[in-house]
Amino acid sequence: MDKLMRNKKAIILFIAPALILFTAVLFIPVCKAVYYSLCNYKINYQPKYIGFKNYVMLFTKDKTMAIAFKNSIFFMIFSIVTQLIFGLILAALLTNIKKGRNLFKNIYYLPCVLSSAALGLLWMFVFMPRLGINQMMASLGWIEDCTMGPEWLFNTDGFIILPIWVISFVALWQYVGQSMMLYMAQISGISMDIYEASYIDGCSKKQSFFYITLPLIKPMVATAMSLNAIGSLKFFDLIYNMIPEGFLSHKADVIATHLYTQAFKFSKLGYGSAIGVILLILCLIMTVIINKFVKTESYDM
């Protein structure tokens, strides 16, 4: 048996396809991206090594990058906080009702499996001045006519502009189902005995939620948080489809859309790679922070 499982030929045969594909299509390109990010590389020309110039430019001169960075960080914080709160509330409510739990659960989860591209377009139409919400507000008499309503996707005032808020809420709408399900899965894993014991000790339902449920699902909070953090840093589809190209003078850009514009609209492959490397570093940092921070705490108790 042991000899069989140490069969070198078999090991290589089993691991090779995945390993090679993984190395060629993921690992080597990451190294290449790092190299390109140190180059002046326009499409149809050869890359030319220029050291850290791209990064210096990104951090000191590129105003759109500053905006994209701000928006991405905002997205991340917004989605971590709101998904945690709403996900927990929904999970708690749904585990406490008897009838229709499945139905509600499935309805809230639906947008998670639909294409963000399609949903982005859908919401773009909803927020279009002449078409969606403003028309409804006008017909209800809340506003004079549809052109007077809020410029949902076009107002560029303020530190975090209105379109970013709107898109944040759409993202919450789309993905809160996933957080909800993660928490529900964890809650349903908690043994009923613990709750019963707590009721005997005189705990109310509310108390048992705060003193039993919350502490016990902490590891899942870490999982959900890092999913949210990385997901929102990589955020592209919704925003690309809700704000048409070139609208708003890049004020609603996030890191991913900035990368796309620089690399594939303006053909600056080296500069785009630098943005990609920064995105990679951000993702790694966030994973480490969340896992260290949330998980160690859960060991403490």
Partner: peptide, 13 residues
């Protein structure tokens, strides 16, 4: 942990 955005450009080339 690697976002696909990072390798998009090298893969494209």
């Amino acid at each position: 942990m690697i976002p696909i955005h990072t390798i998009l450009i090298p893969l494209f080339v």
